[in-house]
Design a protein around this nucleic acid. Structure first.
Length: 595
RNA sequence: GGGGAAGUGGUGUAGCCUGGUCCAACACGCCGCCCUGUCACGGCGGAGACCGCGGGUUCAAAUCCCGUCUUCCCCGCCA
């Protein structure tokens, strides 16, 4: 890297003992100051690191630098000096040297800051977002942004190495009929018509396959106008979007099981990463064992279905689905542990929670024990995973969804409460065999469970077999530590099967042609079998940084209400702009709107 | 659309449950003075908030009640 001698001969992070005696010029931000009255120490910071400057008493710079506000930008000329061994600072990379300042110049003076850049103390997020450029100066955010950049670059290299071609897709496209709410962009040339920002390049990437590009990838921006969560930014997010021709599910898995372990391996440091091949769970298995389709495998607890065993035995379990939640080693826990778990369950809306325990040397105990006949004890212990010293919690509900809503969070609660949750690890798994259809609980209609363009397992025969709810799709999720990184599928490239699949969900052929004109037509001209997946970049970076919130990994994120506090978006526009776009605002304009 | 949590000087918190002792305390930052080896430097002094906003209860409210706004978290939503 070449440096402009006008400003610097070295960066702040690169000086070592070897350069002792060298005359250097440095530029950077005034990070911190330690004024001893005589000698003055300054930390100078730039993108590359931190270096200590020393200003001797009586130096011409002393007066200026002892009062300059922190975060001002300065340029100094000086000599690199090896520190006295007693004053070497091992905590910083340049800690064996310091720069004796001879000449200094203020390049820009900072005003009093709205919050402290250093030390990094807690700051309201609203303020951080409003002054994001200051927030991004802080080492933690600076490192997060840099990690994101490195991850993206690494992924690009990996994908190219694996023979994928990076292809761009449009940002201004058409509104898609299903899925999340679209962001719309009004057309000036076509009054009353709108573009939409893509929720994902789904149709375009499939069209690339039809066009014969074989293996596509893109770090693709996706736009969805949905409410945010800690792991879901409003507005825009990025996916490693990929699609492959002439492949089965196994081929897609092989790519992901190469790229993800390599990415995590490269950036996880000492944290463990699931080696390929990743464990696979069918959707049905996952729901029984974990109560969710995005299980956190760091918690080594698998639930058991105890319906057949206990629904007829425990009076208030009658007619319900029963789930057993083992708590390994739980029997020795005090009563307060069990009360805590029960409280947690009732707080979440459970009508109650039963449990059993086996203290070493004793038999079955706990509130449910009295209902279970002695001859069943062994069977219950075996089927519900209650070994010597263990316990298990039981919840029953007639409604499968309600059951899972209670039991899945309890699994985490118990796992963490018992100290069983694995730390410093990334645990991947595949969830496969998602049902093609589901029944809408309100309308009782058959609806698509996931992506309508997924190929049903068994093809046309399966669709015609009679029970749509029994049909599984070539549809899969990749999950890491309880976070869904991505959904993917082998696509339905056969027009006849596609029309039939939509017909079952209540869409006649004409509707498909009308709603998805590009794909419906393209599939008439020789589409190859193809499939893909699209892991979320933001979530990958969130996992690698260990951040609990996606915004900590994005340089300029929107807040929870989808506002950009830095730029003031969304904002009002001028009447002229609205007129050009043939838009009339219905609500009363608020005072302060531009004229 | 619904639920929860929080809102005290520039920043982070304490006080609020058990109203008066709070014209609000502590830490960081800021200003001034002292200090020649520190590295979250240290010491002394000082300025700075009337407790998100509005209303109510009360002799008296940061503290209780109602409303409202803001932010975050969750549910819905996210094919």
């Amino acid at each position: 890297m070449s440096l402009s001698p006008e400003y610097r001969t070295h960066t702040c992070g690169e000086l070592r003992g070897a350069q002792a005696g060298t005359a250097v010029r440095l530029s950077g931000w005034l990070h911190n100051r330690r004024d001893l009255g005589g000698v003055l120490f300054l930390d100078l910071r730039d993108h590359y690191g931190l270096v200590q400057l020393v200003v001797a008493p009586g130096s011409s710079c002393h007066g200026l630098l002892s009062h300059l506000p922190k975060e001002s930008v300065i340029r100094v000329d000086g000599a690199v000096a090896r520190r006295d061994p007693a004053t070497v600072n091992a905590a910083i990379e340049t800690g064996e040297i310091e720069v004796r300042v001879e000449v200094c110049e203020v390049l820009s003076r900072a005003e009093a800051l709205p919050f402290s850049v250093f030390p990094e103390q807690d700051t309201p997020e609203e303020l951080r977002l409003q002054y994001r450029y200051l927030d991004l100066r802080r080492p933690r955010m600076h490192a997060n942004v840099m990690l994101r950049t490195k991850v993206v670059a690494f992924i690009r290299d990996e994908m190219r190495r694996l023979g994928f071609t990076e292809l761009a897709t449009p940002i201004l496209t058409n509104s898609s009929p299903e899925g999340a709410r679209d962001f719309l962009v009004p057309s000036r040339l076509h009054p009353g018509q709108f573009y939409a920002l893509p929720q994902a390049p789904q149709q375009f990437k499939q069209l690339f396959m039809v066009a014969g590009f074989d293996r596509y990838f893109q770090i693709a921006p996706c736009f969805r106008d949905e409410d945010s969560r800690a792991d879901r930014s409003p507005g825009e997010f990025y996916q490693l979007d990929l699609e492959m021709s002439f492949v089965t599910q196994e081929d897609v898995f092989a790519v992901v099981e190469t790229v993800l372990p390599n990415v995590f391996g490269a950036f996880a440091g000492s944290r463990a990463v699931t080696p390929a091949p990743f464990p696979r769970l069918t959707y049905a298995e996952a729901m029984v064992k974990f109560g969710t389709d995005k299980p956190d495998l760091r918690i080594p607890i698998e639930m058991r279905d105890a319906t057949e065993l206990l629904a007829g035995v425990i009076p208030f379990f009658g007619g319900k689905r029963v789930r057993a939640l083992p708590a390994p080693g739980g029997a020795s826990r005090p009563r307060s542990f069990f009360d805590g778990v029960v409280a947690r369950a009732t707080q979440a809306g459970a009508d109650g929670l039963g449990y059993l325990a086996v203290k070493p040397g004793a038999g079955l105990s706990g509130p449910l024990a009295k209902f279970i006949p002695a001859e069943l004890h062994g069977k219950v212990r075996e089927q519900c995973g209650i070994g010597e010293g263990d316990a298990a919690f039981f919840y029953a509900s007639a409604d499968e969804d309600a059951l899972h809503a209670i039991v899945a969070p309890l699994r985490r609660h118990i796992g963490e409460g018992l100290g069983l949750a694995e730390k410093d690890a990334f645990r991947f798994c595949w969830i496969t065999d998602f049902p093609m259809y589901a029944k809408d609980p309100e309308t009782r209609q058959i609806v698509f469970n996931h992506n309508p363009f997924s190929m049903p397992q068994g093809g046309m025969d399966a669709l015609n077999a009679g029970d749509p709810l029994a049909v599984k799709a070539w549809q899969y999720d990749i999950v890491c530590n309880g976070i869904e990184l991505s959904s993917g599928a082998i696509r339905n490239h056969r027009s006849d099967i596609l029309y039939r699949a939509f017909e079952i969900a209540g869409y006649p052929k004409e509707t498909v042609d009308e709603k998805f004109p590009a794909l419906a037509t393209a599939f008439k001209y020789g589409p190859p079998p193809h499939g893909g997946i699209a892991p979320g970049i933001d979530r990958i970076v969130m996992l690698l940084t260990g951040e609990e919130n996606l915004r900590e990994t994005i340089a300029f994120p929107l807040n929870q209400k989808a506002q950009d506090l830095l730029m003031g978006a969304p904002g009002r526009v001028t009447a002229r702009q609205l007129k050009d776009l043939h838009i009339r605002i219905v609500e009363e304009p608020e005072p302060g709107a531009p004229k």
